[in-house]
Design a protein around this nucleic acid. Structure first.
Length: 586
RNA sequence: GCCCCGAUAGCUCAGCAGGAUAGAGCGUCCCCCUCCUAAGGGGAAGGCCAGAGGUUCGAAUCCUCUUCGGGGCGCCA
């Protein structure tokens, strides 16, 4: 509807340009908004006020000119000028009512569009290190990313969902070493566990598997393990020294092959767990991209070579630096350390270079807000490589701060004291978790009150929406119990009987659904859809309380049933896009 | 110190490519089931949109500064 009015106005503007009432070179940006007040009609446009100055005309006069130039169309009953120069559009009743039939006909596909025209978007999200189970912080990125992906797909983009697996690097070495040390402990070696190691019980579980697979073949005496290892200094001191020495020792004692087996067991066990966790959360990926594969396939070398050739690398203090300051970064960054190992940043350059080469029209990374400082250097690298850095958008998701019993919950993966995503899902249910995460816009800090989310009370807006859906389903069950049939065709012919205020409002809201999906997708703001559904559910509940649907008058009954059936459809479509179920009964 | 995000009802948040009287939920206070799920509905109270300037026909929305929160500034990942 919005688009149709916009088209009419565009035509009006061009005919005014032809007739000389408007300068031909004027820049026109037509904005159609829904009105808040019924007396202002259904849609309003501020075009006349915006053009008043450049056209050197009084806004109200200009509005009149625009109205006179509007092509005739049956969707509009009346056009008014109001206030300082608003143009108000009154949609005709027949046109408004047609939305009901449209919804019922299009069913599951109502609200989908093809604005994206099949353009390819790569969306990378979550990408948590596989060093432990996903925690509640990752949940927000997962829910947000999955919903944005689904929304973009709904408006016609071709979306490639990807998880970047950090299966290389020091953190993974710490995990591998943690597993081995726990294994030694299971073998009754009294080795102290480093304060910096991964403390969670899942590490012990992995060690048990290791023991089952290898028996005591990976065993080494305590003296060999701890000989000349710097002391662990949890308080203040350099505890990194201790764990790094342990990693080195672990690699030497086990040898490359065995070390890799321990490492991979840890990695794969945790990755499988993450994959399953996300799947149960309704989050699926097209690709799990391995960081290790970058080195294996020579992509890191290729990226570094390209930077070198472009003359953006230099040596200092034995390390190789990238001149990211040439592209606005605040300082240069190391890509290869003095020990010859490439940094995480080097992998990331290679990864993004690869993304650019895979032919996407747009690349979106969803990161935690703590990574914001990383954006300039990645973009700098892309520019240095000669890629189009504007193709890359990084969306930052702010932290979700957890509250339990009114107090902040502290989280740390290493200490093992964290609330996992799985625990959250088990407590509040997958539906509530998905909905809750996405209710807030992503750049908003979120207070996630666990007790509130856990409570299965009406305080949770998701139940409210699901209840509206279930209520409509219940009406149709009642109808069947009374041996009455819903005659859609008959209802369609008498939609004009739906003149109650509640009915008019509900019909109006149904019409907003497609533009809401569009806005939510294009702005990457799923919360718009969540709020829309909440409002729609409210209107349904109000209508339900004010009027009986199953009335004696068959004509009125069918018309009303068409309306609530369409409402049920929109609720169902919207919830599906949010990854939330739409139950038939509750 | 520099950078990013935020500040709107008692609480949690919408509204922001400027637009016509600032919205919702929860909480508080009234009221509504002989009737399709009361897991619901109706109503009331509650606001100097953090503060100060600026831009303009018009600012919660844009710009600057200040104050107060959260996060980030490694040859960690």
């Amino acid at each position: 509807m919005k688009h149709e009015i916009k088209t009419l106005l565009t035509q009006a503007v061009s005919s005014l340009k032809t007739s000389g009432h408007l300068p031909a070179d004027i820049d026109v940006n037509i904005q159609i908004t829904r009105t808040k007040d019924q007396s202002h009609g259904d849609f309003a446009c501020n075009l006349a006020m915006m053009l008043a100055k450049p056209a050197a005309k009084n806004p109200r006069e200009l509005a009149q000119l625009l109205i006179d130039a509007l092509p005739k169309h049956k969707i509009i009953d009346k056009v008014d000028i109001a206030g300082p120069g608003f143009i108000n559009f009154f949609v005709s009743q027949s046109s408004a009512l047609s939305i009901i039939d449209t919804v019922l006909t299009q069913a599951d596909t109502f609200g989908l569009s093809n604005i994206g025209a099949g353009r390819k978007i790569q969306l990378e999200f979550v990408s948590a290190n596989p060093t432990g189970p996903l925690h509640v912080g990752h949940g927000r990125g997962a829910a947000y990313g999955a919903t944005v992906a689904d929304l973009l797909e709904a408006v016609g983009f071709n979306v490639h969902r990807e998880y970047y697996v950090n299966d290389a690097g020091r953190q993974m070495d710490i995990l591998g070493t943690s597993v081995w040390l726990r294994y030694l402990q299971l073998c009754d070696i009294d080795v102290p566990f480093p304060s910096n190691g991964y403390q969670g019980d899942y590490v012990i579980d992995i060690a048990r598997t290791l023991l089952a697979q290898h028996d005591k073949n990976l065993l080494h005496p305590l003296a060999a393990v701890m000989d000349e290892i710097p002391a662990d200094e949890p308080q203040g001191g350099d505890k990194e020294l201790h764990i790094d020495a342990l990693i080195a020792r672990c690699k030497i004692l086990l040898g490359d092959d065995s070390y890799l087996q321990v490492f991979d067991l840890g990695l794969n066990t945790i990755l499988d767990d993450i994959r399953q966790d996300l799947e149960e959360f309704g989050v699926v990926y097209d690709e799990w991209f391995s960081e290790r594969s970058l080195a294996k396939n020579g992509l890191i070398k290729q990226a570094i070579d390209r930077l070198q050739k472009a003359n953006y690398l230099y040596e200092k203090d034995g390390a190789l630096w990238f001149k990211s300051t040439d592209f606005g970064d605040e300082k240069d960054r190391v890509v290869v350390r003095d020990n010859g190992q490439h940094t995480y940043f080097a992998s990331d350059i290679a990864y993004h270079m690869d993304k650019m080469e895979r032919g996407f029209d747009r690349v979106i990374d969803i990161w935690g807000a703590d990574h914001h400082g990383y954006i300039p250097r990645v973009k700098a690298a892309l520019k240095a490589l000669g890629d189009d850095a504007d193709k890359l958008d990084v969306l930052l998701v702010q932290f979700a701060v957890l509250y339990r019993h009114g107090e902040k919950v502290q989280m740390s993966t290493r200490s093992g004291s964290f609330v996992t995503l799985r625990e959250l899902r088990e407590d509040v249910g997958t539906d509530a978790a998905r909905f809750f995460y996405v209710m807030r816009k992503c750049e908003q800090h979120m207070d996630f009150d666990l007790d509130l989310a856990k409570s299965r009370s009406n305080e949770n807006p998701m139940y409210y929406i699901q209840y509206a859906h279930a209520r409509i389903c219940s009406v149709f069950r009642q109808l069947a119990d009374k041996n009455l049939h819903h005659d859609i065709a008959a209802g369609n012919q008498h939609l004009h009987m739906l003149t109650e205020t509640h009915e008019v409002q509900l019909i109006n809201s149904l019409g907003k659904y497609p533009e809401t999906v569009e806005a939510a997708a294009l702005n990457e703001e799923p919360h718009l859809l969540a709020h829309f559904l909440r409002d729609l559910a409210n209107e349904l509940h109000t209508y339900y309380n004010a009027h009986q649907f199953i009335v004696d008058d068959a004509v009125m009954r069918n018309a009303r049933l068409n309306l609530i059936s369409a409402t049920r459809q929109v609720l169902s479509n919207g919830l599906k896009l949010l990854g939330v179920s739409a139950p038939d009964s509750m």
